[in-house]
């Protein structure tokens, strides 16, 4: 019983983390039509930046914010200086994001070495919450809460604001959006860097659970890809549902069938790509 409850909670908390990782990724994918293969690198960079800020005496929440802003800035530069120059060449853009992911991974290895960096949860969140004879890790619940708040904020942004309406228009029909005078190229920068910022935040928030280590990027990127493929590129609801679905698949997959964990993860992705290429919730055909 304990096993199932703890695994379920871990899955939900991990799902929340995945939502931070993949919501911005999904919006950028939907808008710009490309998966940013450096997104796992952004997450890892966030984890290292956060761990570094805390290690030099910074407060945990300052670290979260700092990592988010730092990675967001890198996102702006990447979009403006590189992706922009390849406008229209979708294949080239994807390959460039892959190239950048190698650079990020290698620079992280150079700066932070091959040994994992641990980042303890803030001390006030370390004592577990006791409820009905079970002990729940407080920090994971807080991460879940943050993810839900971010989800709500993104929902309001997408559904209630002018910016959100413009993004939705761009996801639905780029040419039409351009035609009615929406500044599509500015949207690209905004959405891409928003995705980077969320990945950076997520990296630091995830560090107490996952640590920061070489290869974290390669572990996280496929998860983001799967979330988006299940949920459909550009769909916030899809990213939300997809994140928690993958959270459960991943946690229970590793706990129950360790040999086949990747198989269990990638098989749904392949099946969805093959039989419903627009994703379960997606509106745009790829």
């Amino acid at each position: 019983m304990q096993f199932w409850i703890i695994q379920t909670l871990n899955s939900v908390a991990f799902g929340g983390l995945l939502f931070l990782l993949s919501s911005g990724f999904s919006l950028a994918f939907g808008l710009m039509r490309i998966p940013n293969l450096a997104h796992g690198g952004f997450f890892m960079l966030g984890a290292y930046l956060g761990a570094t800020i805390v290690s030099v005496g910074g407060n945990f929440w300052v670290a979260v914010l700092g990592a988010g802003l730092g990675v967001g800035l890198i996102g702006i530069l990447f979009e403006r200086l590189i992706l922009r120059r390849l406008a229209g060449n979708v294949q080239g853009q994807v390959l460039v994001t892959l190239g950048v992911s190698f650079i990020i991974a290698d620079l992280c290895l150079m700066i932070w070495t091959g040994d994992p960096w641990t980042l303890p949860a803030p001390s006030e969140l370390r004592p577990p919450i006791r409820l009905g004879g079970f002990a729940f890790p407080t920090f994971r619940l807080v991460v879940l809460g943050i993810a839900l708040v971010v989800a709500a904020a993104l929902y309001v942004l997408m559904d209630r604001t002018r910016l959100g309406a413009m993004i939705r228009a761009g996801v639905d029909d780029m040419e039409m959006a351009r035609g009615v005078g929406i500044p599509v190229s500015l949207l690209f920068t905004v959405v891409f860097s928003l995705g980077a910022l969320l990945a950076g935040l997520g990296g630091t928030l995830g560090a107490p659970m996952l640590n920061a280590y070489p290869g974290l990027d390669a572990d996280m990127l496929p998860l983001a890809l799967i979330v988006v493929i299940l949920g459909g590129a550009g769909s916030l609801l899809g990213a939300f549902v997809g994140s928690f679905a993958v959270g459960f698949l991943y946690n229970f997959g590793i706990a129950l069938f360790p040999d086949l964990a990747y198989f269990i993860l990638f098989l749904p992705m392949v099946l969805v790509l093959v039989f419903r290429p627009q994703g379960l919730f997606g509106r745009v055909a790829s």
Binding site: V94, P222, L225, I229, Y262, L267, V270, L273, S286
Partner: peptide, 24 residues
């Protein structure tokens, strides 16, 4: 089943499945 980016992502996923099985 797909073309362009979809093709690229399916091949990526299949490659990761093979890698994952080898790894795990």
């Amino acid at each position: 089943r797909a073309s362009g980016i979809g093709f690229l992502m399916i091949t990526l996923a299949l490659g990761q499945i093979v890698w994952g099985i080898a790894y795990r």
